[in-house]
């Protein structure tokens, strides 16, 4: 396997969704992530990220988004869209 380029990503962690289980922190092969004082995951060493996708796949709460640097949020990709979110308390 070729060595992956480092630091080509932007990582967003939604603190509201993160429950601080620590899976991403423990198993990140490049040790990019750490648990913050609030108990939630945070990005500690962004430059080390090899964009392997482990944290995204293993985050049970879908709280980590890893994007290529400078990439925008893409349009919804599922086969059917056009949802109108219904307000709910």
């Amino acid at each position: 396997m070729t060595k992956k380029a480092k630091g080509q990503t932007e990582i967003t962690i939604y603190p509201d969704w993160c429950k601080g289980c620590g899976i991403c922190v423990e198993f990140c092969p490049a040790k990019v992530l750490a648990l913050g004082r609030d108990g939630k995951a945070r990005v500690a060493r962004l430059d080390e990220c090899i964009n392997c996708g482990f944290c995204e796949r293993h985050c049970p709460d879908f709280a980590i988004v890893v994007r290529g640097k400078g990439r925008k949020r893409r349009a919804p990709a599922c086969a059917e869209n056009g949802e109108t979110p219904v307000d709910k308390e």
């Binding site: 964009n51 995204e56 796949r57 049970p60 879908f62 890893v66 994007r67 893409r74 990709a77 599922c78």
Partner: peptide, 22 residues
Amino acid sequence: MADITELIHDYLRHNKKFPHVF
């Protein structure tokens, strides 16, 4: 490896509260 979490977000119900109960 991108688009993993964003893809999931597209399939979640927008009228449900997150994070989930687990």
